[in-house]
Design a binder for these strands. Structure first.
Lengths: 184, 184
DNA sequence: GCCCTCATGTAATATGTTACATGATTTG
DNA sequence: CAAATCATGTAACATATTACATGAGGGC
């Protein structure tokens, strides 16, 4: 079976939800996959075109009288097949997350302690606001009960985000302590 | 001051260590920055060329009699300046780590529970082996005491890797429990 | 009328990986 | 002397972001 890139599979997956247009896909990504995936319009529209060419989806351009210029995409059975096959494939490797703060810290001895501390504090704040975002999304999902079958899985991914973010915050606190301890 | 990309700053930073050639830079990245950064030769050599063009580094091609074809790079004062300025700049944003396992889990309802469980178990194993790698590097560094000033910062980045990986492992365990609980 | 959101799309650019080509030096 | 490692480099390709262009429709 032909191989596609991750972006293609992501869009294939999103087309199993109620999202049917490029715009709606972008919305979903920015709102729900935001903490572990992002795609720009510059990828979405060409990919949708590819899906149709490859017979993985069909496009319905709505009649100009109704909603001009609006496209609706639906998975074909081949598209669903390709998605399922991809879901089964094992993960090649745990990704190397490029982390700018760690890169800077790695070269930390070329900077004053005060500036390093300032960087870490700022980073910690960003992590905290991210954590708060996850918690509020989680709350929003759990309060709107009886949503679809999908929500269970969506909560799993949110839980991941919360746990990993919390660990990063703890690391910030610990590292800041270590740095300040040396002042004495 | 002119802007460069992250890769350029990473190489600029590495040139403050004893690494003086493209090959040595690649070695250091694969051994020590591995858990939060990676660069291929296809980026390293063109970037080194750029550094020289921009007057951020000098290159010394060793005489053919001694070590033919070997290049030694050294930062210029301008290069050191650019590095320092970058270290001070605040982090734009916490990176969105693209996580394939979360992407697949997000669409988990289109797959049997058994297959999802299998995926997670495999992922957990990879995380565990990664954790072990971090721990052994950490042990290696701490046992070779009295290394440079850099080691303190290197240990901070390793600690980050350990903490975040541990949180991810805990998440795997918890999620697996949740999935199996529903069987009843 | 103006601004905002909805909606689609492309072109230029930036970034990064992979595969390949080449050859010296070291080690068993 | 063969294999592994050291060492540099490029070209083709893959991926992704940004900026731009365009226009409909709704609310103030």
């Amino acid at each position: 079976m032909k191989k596609y890139n991750h972006t293609t599979y992501a869009i294939l997956g999103i087309l199993t939800t109620e999202c049917r247009s490029g715009y709606a896909i972008k919305q979903l990504i920015d709102q729900s996959l935001n903490h572990f995936w992002k795609i720009s319009y510059g990828q979405i529209y060409p990919t949708l075109k590819l899906l149709v060419e490859e017979d993985l989806a069909t496009v319905t351009t709505l009649s100009p009288e109704l909603k001009p210029g609006k496209n609706e995409y639906h998975l074909t059975s081949k598209g669903k097949e390709v998605l399922k096959k991809w879901l089964e494939e094992p993960i090649e490797q745990v990704p190397v997350e490029r982390n700018e703060i760690l890169l800077k810290l790695f070269f930390g001895r070329h900077q004053s302690k005060e500036k390093t501390v300032f960087q870490l504090e700022e980073y910690k704040q960003k992590l905290e606001s991210r954590y708060a975002t996850y918690a509020s999304i989680e709350h929003f999902i759990t309060s709107n009960k009886a949503k679809g079958e999908d929500t269970k899985y969506w909560l799993f991914t949110l839980d991941y985000g919360k746990r990993v973010t919390e660990a990063a915050i703890d690391w910030c606190i610990f590292t800041l302590e270590q740095l300040e301890k040396e002042e004495e």
